[in-house]
Design a protein around this nucleic acid. Sequence first.
DNA 1: ACTCATTTTCAAAGCGCTTTGAATGACGCA
DNA 2: TGCGTCATTCAAAGCGCTTTGAAAATGAGT
Lengths: 343, 343
Amino acid sequence: MNLKQLSEILGLSQTTVSRALNGYPEVNEDTRLRVQAAAAKHGYWPNSRAKGLATGRSMVIGHVIPSSSQHEMVNPIFGDFVAGAARKYSDHGYDMMFTNADDTSIEEAYRSLFQRGAVDGIVLQGPKVNEHRIEVLTRMGVPFIVHGRSTGVDVPYDWIDVNNKSSFLRATRFLIDLGHRRIALINGLEDMDFAQRRRDGYLEALHEAGLSPDPELMRSAEMTEVYGHHETRDMLRLDDPPTAILTASMISAIGVRRALNEAGLKMGKDVSVIAHDDDLSYLKNGQDVPIFTATRSSVRRAGEMAAEMLIERIKSPEDPVKTRLLEAELVVGGSTGPAPNRF
Amino acid sequence: MNLKQLSEILGLSQTTVSRALNGYPEVNEDTRLRVQAAAAKHGYWPNSRAKGLATGRSMVIGHVIPSSSQHEMVNPIFGDFVAGAARKYSDHGYDMMFTNADDTSIEEAYRSLFQRGAVDGIVLQGPKVNEHRIEVLTRMGVPFIVHGRSTGVDVPYDWIDVNNKSSFLRATRFLIDLGHRRIALINGLEDMDFAQRRRDGYLEALHEAGLSPDPELMRSAEMTEVYGHHETRDMLRLDDPPTAILTASMISAIGVRRALNEAGLKMGKDVSVIAHDDDLSYLKNGQDVPIFTATRSSVRRAGEMAAEMLIERIKSPEDPVKTRLLEAELVVGGSTGPAPNRF
DNA sequence: ACTCATTTTCAAAGCGCTTTGAATGACGCA
DNA sequence: TGCGTCATTCAAAGCGCTTTGAAAATGAGT
């Protein structure tokens, strides 16, 4: 059933039927009702490709999934971010498109997505330091938003980000206030921008307190459970092991906890742990009292906000650059306590 | 830059340029090279909407994300399944589209996706028992594949599934062989088809061994960490608590482990645990020796296979129904051991 | 040189929609 | 009765591509 057939059934022109369905005012209200009824009855859905061709808009937002194993770490938060964004997209009549690309062709993937007219805007996830893709997208002239930021990129661009530096600054201070001096950081991969900022916050807090950072206590790895476990076990074997550990995700924190258990150490007593909590729907940080003391910021919420900001950008390409910095909460749970006495 | 402009630059007809780029044999090889060079030079990308209009194909596969909280549980495996599928899609020139729908409009979401011509095929995820959507899709005549199956639906359809029943049958037998008699099942939500089948396998093994199922030991909940923890804690308080627990996902198994630790019980000694392991990239089941004894089946792999089966279906709509039943491995890890002696 | 088969190229129609610019009809008023 | 106005409706062009059916160019064979 297409527009032509429907208009013939109704004895109206395609123009009128199209306008009736799209809410144009210059169509008689009775006619509109008749048209709508007929459309429903015959199951007419306007072909979105044809519509897109005619309007020049696709009503689709594009995301790129890098397929390299380097980026597996995006996965745990992927689902929630996407779920948040998808809801807002559909509120505004947009769909969401994913393209897969391996590391070598990733730039091309972005380009083709927009140049082909497949999408009206793009979400850039997981920016690294000096993220080249930002300049590529800027040059292309595609509306886009970055989830995160990129140190070293000086063209202006829209972004939404958690204040990673201040989160980790505050978390580290919190541990220092509890008397901890040997504080470890199990960070994400440090070519990721968010990891850099977290490290900056961590280092700043150490510096404030006159503590000098120990490279042995600064680890950087994919944020998996296994790595959290591995790095923790490794550090516990040091002569002067950490009494507190900051870690970049709940997933790796679970690995940290496992390592502590295996070593017969009690979390929150022998060793304190603070995790960054993306508030994933399937991995809540406990019920009433949080399991982990954590810097918390909902990635689902970030997805929603990113979607809305992008849609605004598409509507108003000439607006000044929009940015949004979210502060994470520092929620205190059962995984932290005063530094143990070692005398 | 569009086809018309490119063809004018080249002094050729649109026909020839189009054919040159699409690899038709009736175009002179020299001409093809010239055309390809010019296309690259001028950054020409065929407009995919126009292409779709002309060919009647969109080269897009649709997925629907239900937005209700009932389905949060899909999230943890969502990322990996999608990553697997996306890779295969892009190998075959397909993109992937997501639409968000709440529970009331979910059927309409599928319908509109296809009827609007936005997609050439659909992946149905998370089927329930008596899954109504399967009949809807069948009636619509859209090529689709189900990840999972649906008990009670008797129209034929393509699916790929893990043999959930046999996995849990074998896992339960394994525990029985270790001497366990009080075996608990922390299942997923039981309106989900996979959960039913797992329960069937569990019950069958009990029955074989002449054990009668205890409703107190059969729990059904979303597969989150918190629920795994909650149900375990609850069961440990029983007069006759379980000595072994089967659980539906690694995520909930982590909650189980937490509850056991809190109770001062040693996993694999005091209480044995077997989890179903979807082999998620960010949540590997340990390194060399698995942490959890598990029924393992890669959901990423399932995503890849689903994608390929669907693409075949799109190519050959008339082929007989294709189904694929994967057997999970039963891998033995550190979380199981002989039933403790309670005399 | 001429025919015929083959290779290569082309003009034009069509995919299903929106939108422009024009036409039609109804109505009020002189 | 005739005219201008406003509310509705319409025919046709155009979005950028593929594909059909025909034409032009080339080459082999006599």
